[in-house]
């Protein structure tokens, strides 16, 4: 009994601190400020990003025009020149848009392959401790070996074109899918397992009706991480494997070596937007697939 008293007092103090205008007594007095606070939160959550964005653009202009001498402004071209000298310049966009398309193709091909291999790999490991013990170290190795060190080798074996770029994507995107799928399958509720055991469910039935559905939230979280990584993979792959039509990575390196500031920055923005788009796309897919029943994704809405 005595233990509850100080707690109640503490609660009261907190209430007073948070809303000084409110009488600090009855619990019934709290709903009003709660509602108000939430509305204010909503407003700030839309307004704040805009303010921050405007501030960044302001700083950017300041750097361009206040700190850089006119001859060095290609180092950080003013924001509007990205539009005038790149977005509205057909010479530039005729390079950027097709490159964007190719980068998308490479990263989605890589991601698709990583998803198939990664899930099969994880499922195989989930079915037997021996398989897990023998295959998991390689998944970790994939994560630990610097992919860049293997890049020359990939070039020798698969030539310096599309295939090699896709392989880089696969290698970068594979680990999160393997580890998340395995984690998802292994964290299935013990009670659910016993239910299936009790009714003599076979391996495949258990996998299809219990383990995979239960793992879906984790699997989709893995997809989302890997999707972002495979865009990175496509850019990195570009930098090393320049045979064939250029992707965004090659453009980045070309524009930068020719000191074309505005096109370079424009391409960086396009790359970033692609990364964002992929991330959000997979967030949306996850929500469609498991949002109905999986609690965590409710916060997003």
């Amino acid at each position: 009994m005595t233990a509850t008293l100080p707690t109640a007092e503490e609660t009261r103090v907190t209430t007073t601190l948070e809303s000084p205008t409110q009488a600090p007594v009855a619990a019934g007095a709290t709903p009003a400020p709660l509602v108000r606070r939430r509305r204010r939160n909503k407003l700030t959550s839309y307004l704040l990003p805009v303010v921050v964005f405007a501030a960044l653009i302001g700083v950017w202009y300041a750097i361009t025009y206040l700190f850089l001498e006119p001859g060095k402004r290609f180092l950080m071209p003013a924001p509007h020149t990205l539009i005038t000298d790149a977005l509205l310049d057909p010479v530039i966009t005729d390079k950027v848009w097709p490159a964007l398309g190719r980068t998308i193709v490479v990263s989605f091909a890589g991601l698709g392959i990583a998803i198939v291999i990664g899930m099969l790999w994880a499922i195989a490991m989930s079915q037997s401790k021996a398989v897990e013990a023998s295959l998991y170290p390689y998944a970790v190795a994939l994560q630990c070996i610097p992919i860049l060190a293997l890049v020359p080798l990939i070039g020798f074996w698969f030539d310096f074109g599309f295939e090699s770029r896709v392989i880089v994507c696969v290698m970068i995107a594979l680990f999160p899918i393997v580890s998340n799928t395995l984690f998802g399958i292994q964290s299935v509720d013990r009670g659910h397992h016993e239910l299936f055991t009790l009714h003599r469910a076979g391996r495949i039935t258990r996998l299809v009706k219990l383990q995979l559905p239960a793992a879906l939230p984790a699997i989709f979280a893995g997809f989302r991480i890997s999707a972002g990584l495979s865009v990175v993979g496509a850019i990195v792959g570009d930098l090393f494997f320049k045979k064939g039509d250029p992707g965004l990575g090659i453009l980045l390196s070309n524009f930068s070596s020719r000191l074309q500031g505005a096109p370079l920055f424009f391409t960086i923005v396009v790359t970033a937007v692609l990364g964002f788009a992929v991330f959000f796309l997979f967030g949306l897919l996850a929500k469609l697939a498991v949002g109905r029943w999986y609690d965590q994704s409710r916060d997003a809405g």
């Binding site: 009670g191 659910h192 239910l195 009790l198 239960a214 029943w293 999986y294």
Partner: peptide, 14 residues
């Protein structure tokens, strides 16, 4: 056949 009702309902959430 045996029916077994656990302390948790153990329903599949999906």
């Amino acid at each position: 056949r045996i029916g077994y009702v656990f302390q948790d309902a153990t329903l599949l959430p999906w």
